[in-house]
């Protein structure tokens, strides 16, 4: 059984069908990259998996470790081990990063029947992960993402991922807008989390990210379907040729 099984997934937003039959299996230990032109459905897929209510699933099923993911609330999916690093992390004034993250971690531990972690044990854990992402310690007492630069927000997402330790991590355009230094730092953080027990899905526009995080599989989305799958070399091909050469395939998808 694959960790994540997506079968014939159709979804729409505001009555417009975006996903038109996605099929994908992801196993523990694998790193997948989802690529494709704007509007192909990459981010929609990520949001559907994160259980955002604005996206309506009209057909298909998604099993996460054998459980029906589409029946879960966002918090249940998180507690089951799913994490999504958002493309646009939200600013939440008035709640500090460390308070929030400890509350989230404890909610997940409670779900798994584990004892809550107290602040004394939590702070060193948080500091260690922040150091890995080269974030100043002062960020822990700042409000969630408030006044953070784009790069700081993305790094903060990876800090959260490192602390929450999910079994399936989906990175939604985490590389967009990052300068090369930030990209290296984020990649280093993600690579440190590669493990035989964990699967990682990277949604991206750019091949550049894949120089730093080398995927096992690359999938090309177009018109709400996966039109081509391959190994890391597929990304290089895309980089070289653009998406033009998949046009015939795209036409076939329609």
């Amino acid at each position: 059984m694959a960790m994540l099984e997506i079968r014939n997934l159709h979804a729409r937003v505001n009555k417009q069908e975006i996903l038109k039959g996605i099929n994908l299996d992801i196993n523990a230990g694998e790193v997948h990259s989802l690529m494709g032109p704007n509007g192909s459905g990459k981010s929609t897929l990520a949001q559907v998996l994160a259980r955002r209510e604005t996206y309506e699933v009209t057909e298909g099923e998604v099993l996460f470790n054998g459980k029906d993911l589409l029946a879960m609330k966002p918090e249940e999916a998180a507690c089951e081990g799913l994490f999504i690093a958002f493309q646009y992390p939200v600013e939440v004034p008035g709640i500090s990063n460390s308070y929030f993250l400890r509350a989230a971690l404890n909610a997940q531990r409670k779900y798994r029947g584990e004892e809550p972690i107290d602040a004394i044990d939590f702070i060193p854990l948080l500091k260690e992960k922040m150091k890995l992402l080269e974030m100043d310690e002062r960020f822990q007492s700042r409000a969630i993402n408030e006044g953070f630069s784009g790069g700081e927000k993305k790094r903060n997402e990876i800090v959260q991922m490192a602390v929450l330790n999910p079994s399936l991590a989906i990175l939604d355009e985490t590389d967009s807008g990052l300068d090369i230094d930030a990209l290296k730092i984020v990649s280093q953080g993600v690579n440190a989390m590669r493990s035989p027990d964990r699967a990682i899905v990277m949604v991206t526009h750019y091949q550049r990210l894949l120089d730093y995080i080398v995927p096992d599989f690359v999938h090309v989305l177009a018109g709400g379907k996966i039109v081509k799958s391959g190994g890391a070399e597929l990304a290089l091909e895309l980089e070289r040729e653009g998406y033009g050469w998949i046009e015939p395939a795209l036409a076939g998808a329609r």
Partner: peptide, 10 residues
């Protein structure tokens, strides 16, 4: 949604 996506219930 952001807070819930990290595991906090509604």
């Amino acid at each position: 949604f952001y807070l819930r996506s990290r595991g906090l219930d509604e």
